[in-house]
């Protein structure tokens, strides 16, 4: 304000000359990533509430070590340090939410290292990786420590720091055998079941997903196509002789489906840029999830499904190029 009383502000000798545009929307990579962190908060809090302090520790370890590994690799490789864009924190959080609260503490550390160093930085850093780092790490951990990764505590079973959890059958195991899980649909929806830290409460995940949609961080295409395909296929082909609708709803609310559809499949770097491409991507993810859940040895197929579709992103982009204004869709090459 006091500058207003002084009209004699001088123009500097040199002005900045730069190409247009001279305006910019105030959205940055960092602000986008922070929005994702905020959107994951409800699910994280719920997971910690349900499984206790150990769940918190697993999540914190993932986040801290992801950021740390990003910093270290960038220092070693003499790349610009970009931990302030929060993308490593998002990867860490997503990884943590995809782990069982009972995993031994070296699992989050190794997982973070794999996600950040191998999948992200060795491919060239942010924007260059072809697979979702958190998912790739989860699959890697599943293979390396199958036992530890598939022991889930029951809900409200606040796991002590030293694990001695009683494994509870997850709903997906029941569904695979063609029977309904013990948990009721509402328990599944509100998240009063066992499972990975972040995937249990569909409600909390939806809250976060809607936040992302409202903030225009993600578009509806991938989640809707993904969940819609799963809904359709499970409705048409229920397993066992379960009622269609119940089977469909139970399938939708079980496992990492909602987490995957809203937070993993929509990862910018590893999803298509065109609306049409995003829909095909979502449909592909959904179809693969159902296929893997029905026919593969795994109970859960979300991670694999998304990773497989990740590999196709470039082709999907190229196949769904929008028609350029003023051009025919297929220009005859002279």
């Amino acid at each position: 304000m006091d500058q207003n009383q002084n009209p004699a502000v001088k123009a500097p000798e040199l002005l900045t000359v730069s190409p247009s545009p001279h305006a910019h929307r105030q959205v940055t990579t960092a602000s986008v990533m922070k929005d994702v962190l905020i959107a994951l908060l409800p699910a994280t809090v719920w997971g910690i509430y349900l499984f206790g302090i150990r769940a918190a520790l697993v999540v914190v370890l993932c986040v801290v070590f992801s950021v740390l590994f990003e910093l270290l690799t960038q220092l070693v490789l003499r790349r610009p340090v970009t931990i302030s864009d929060c993308s490593a924190a998002v990867t860490g959080l997503l990884l943590g939410l995809n782990l069982s609260p009972t995993v031994p503490f070296y699992v989050p550390v190794v997982g973070s290292a794999f996600a950040i160093i191998v999948v992200k930085q060795l491919f060239g850093g942010i924007g260059k990786n072809i697979m979702n780092p958190a998912l790739a790490a989860r699959v890697f951990l599943m293979m390396a420590w199958t036992g530890e990764m598939t022991v889930f505590p029951a809900a409200y079973d606040r796991v002590a720091l030293s694990v001695d959890a009683v494994a509870s059958a997850t709903p997906l195991v029941s569904l695979k055998q063609g029977v309904l899980p013990d948990a009721s649909l509402s328990e599944l929806f509100f998240g009063q079941i066992g499972g990975c830290i972040g995937e249990i409460s569909v409600l909390m995940l939806l809250v976060g997903g809607i936040y992302l949609l409202v903030r225009k961080v993600i578009t509806w295409h991938i989640p809707v196509a993904f969940l819609g395909t799963v809904a359709l296929l499970t409705f048409l082909f229920p397993q066992g002789d379960l009622p269609r609708l119940t089977f469909m709803l139970t399938s939708l609310c079980s496992g990492g489906l909602v987490l995957g559809a809203f937070f993993m499949a929509t990862d910018y770097v590893t999803s298509p840029v065109t609306p049409a491409g995003r829909i095909i991507f979502g449909v592909g993810c959904g179809a693969l999830v159902v296929f893997l859940r029905y026919f593969s040895g795994y109970n859960e197929g979300v991670s694999f499904a998304i990773l497989i579709m990740n590999a196709l992103v470039w082709y999907l982009d190229m196949c769904t190029k929008p028609r350029v204004f003023g051009k025919k869709r297929r220009e005859k090459k002279a």
Binding site: H22, T29, G127, K128, S271, V273, P322
Partner: peptide, 23 residues
């Protein structure tokens, strides 16, 4: 606000907003 630069994160904003429908 114009001075922040990082690598392309493939978000697709530029694609959905381009009035000439380019990528």
């Amino acid at each position: 606000i114009n001075t922040y630069h990082s690598a392309c994160i493939h978000c697709g904003n530029c694609v959905t907003h381009c009035p000439m429908h380019l990528m």
